[in-house]
Design a protein around this nucleic acid. Structure first.
Lengths: 335, 335
DNA sequence: AAAACTCATGTCATCGATGACATAGTTGCT
DNA sequence: AGCAACTATGTCATCGATGACATGAGTTTT
């Protein structure tokens, strides 16, 4: 590997001068500059970022930790972060936390040792207090899920509002027995969505039936399974509110397999092909790319102005995209 | 930030001894070890990876460059790489190349400056000779697309075979006018798939009609558009071979919008919900996660044994997943 | 013409961890 | 006892780039 010293020797100057040329320092004669640049070209000099960043103590890297990079939602978030980061010559190191909350801390800590300049995290555990000690080393921004036992910036979707709207939408279409399918209430997101669901039922004066609250699934398959159980109930639901997109990709096929596309479905979170399924699935759209972008911009803003004050809690509005899956049976077949 | 020197002072030893304790060097008395460990705990010492890796000249990072991290295929590849990398305590830095080939080189070069230990790339440009000079610094592995103007390891799917099989499958279902939709033949992948398609037609003694070869689209929307054009042809195709999954997510809705789900469709590359669409879409499955894993393992193997020889060209078999979209009209409506 | 000032360039130290080597103290063996 | 072998620990240099400061040559000022 070619170093500045190599270039310096070749050009007959000191390493410092090479550094100056490289960094466009005006205090270099045109003549020297050209000789150095020629030497750089000949030796194909490439700066060693590791040395530079080591000296600065910073790595020009933003760490990203999400439950699963392959999940379309988080993949889109990642893309949003990446695009924003690139505008500031920052790279991103990405990590999947998986679904075992007890591993979260150690996975994060290996990331953090790399002297990242900022961390964007969608946590899976029920306690992020371990991040406290890092907070004055670099900015930390939570996305999708609020931090627990820690104060930090966060950008979350309007979980309560979205769930409320989704449920209300089902009610408006005449549904009275509405089930909710989701993961664990350990996840703050799910908790809030459940609350939104409950509030909408209350609002409409509907009875809340605990047997229609089907939480606790771990993946799409489990969601599909629980969906079958729900429909086998003596007093089965006529509509399902799927509290996240991942589960919707399990619930929809389950309904289809049972030939029960008469059951209304609405999903918190858009998902690929939701608009071309039959029936197309109404969703609460979260704009993940935007979430990623604003989170990254917050990190960058905090790096640029460490003392400035920012709004901690940021709720990103969600949008109901109405498709066919909530239409009443009559309306659907008539279409 | 706490350094080894801080810990050393606190424990009344030299920094080197702290280093020894940290690295489990046996030449430390139990007594000293404990004092140092206590000091580390009190000061919450965390090693500075940047310093370590700078000294080693390596960063314990694998660089990944793909056209788009948010694309489900590449997201899955990334996941596969990440899981393999983590087993070796390596992090991944991810970069999207976008769709402008002329930017590829500069994007890669910013990644490469970070002294990555290996690079996994799915290129978008038509010339990777610029990577030549890096080849003896760290292993480079191509995925999905073979390198151009460069010799390097690659792991690609069986493009020719898969396309052949897909086309043959359509022929077996009675189709005689089969269109192919894809991006540019600048992409080797597409070129090979086109060849597979042509070979299958030849094999069956079918006439190859140039107007059915609809390449050149840049995204799903363009693919949808071209699909409409195809169907408006006087002698329109009865089947479409979509040469990649991304485009299939454009073609399918287009067919549906035109109410032409009688047109058979097969997709090179599985995509989310393909199995629950109506009709469900037959695909050539590529197993992206596996592609990611083997690519990462090759990187790791090359790092571990720099002189060992490996097979350069690796073709990963693909698998036809038969669903409904190629069934003849009669069969489908009867199902 | 001497003093003051510019400007190009160089020298040295530094960032944190760690190899190479040094040193002082201890144990073991004849 | 005397010397080798070993052990615990320390000192120094190093990785590459770059800030702080130094130097020396040339230029301006009075």
């Amino acid at each position: 590997m070619t170093t500045m010293q190599d270039v310096a020797t070749r050009a007959g100057v000191s390493a410092k001068t090479v550094s100056r040329v490289f960094n466009d320092d005006p205090h270099v004669t045109e003549d020297t500059r050209e000789r150095v640049q020629a030497a750089m070209r000949e030796l194909k000099y490439v700066p060693n970022m590791l040395a530079r960043t080591f000296r600065e103590g910073k790595s020009a890297v933003i760490g990203i930790a999400v439950p699963d990079v392959a999940d379309p939602f988080f993949a889109a978030v990642t893309k949003g972060i990446e695009l924003a980061a690139r505008e500031h010559d920052m790279a991103i190191v990405v990590t999947s936390l998986g679904d075992n909350p007890s591993l979260e801390q150690s996975i994060i800590e290996t990331t953090v040792r790399r002297q990242i300049d900022g961390l964007i995290i969608a946590p899976i555990a029920a306690d992020q207090s371990y991040l406290l000690r890092w907070q004055d080393s670099f900015p930390i921004v939570f996305i999708d899920r609020i931090p627990t036992k820690l104060n930090a910036d966060y950008f979350v979707e309007d979980d309560f509002g979205g769930a409320f709207e989704a449920t209300q939408h089902l009610i408006a279409h005449g549904h009275r027995r509405i089930a909710i399918v989701g993961d664990s209430t350990d996840v703050p997101t799910t908790r809030l969505r459940l609350e939104g669901y409950r509030a909408a039922l209350d609002d409409a004066g509907l009875k809340k039936d605990e047997e229609l609250i089907a939480l606790g699934s771990r993946d799409a398959d489990a969601a599909a399974q629980i969906c079958k159980t729900l429909l086998a109930l003596p007093d089965a639901p006529t509509a399902i509110f799927s509290s996240n997109a991942r589960f919707s990709t399990g619930v929809f096929p389950a309904l289809q397999a049972l030939n029960r596309t008469d059951i209304a479905l609405i999903s918190f979170g858009d998902f690929p092909m939701a608009d071309v399924l039959q029936p197309s699935v109404s969703v609460i759209d979260q704009n993940p790319r935007q979430v990623g972008r604003v989170a990254a911009e917050r990190i960058l803003a905090r790096i640029a102005a460490p003392t400035k004050r920012f709004r901690r809690k940021n709720v990103i509005p969600v949008k109901l995209i109405e498709r066919q899956s909530c239409q009443s049976v009559g309306a659907l077949s008539a279409s």
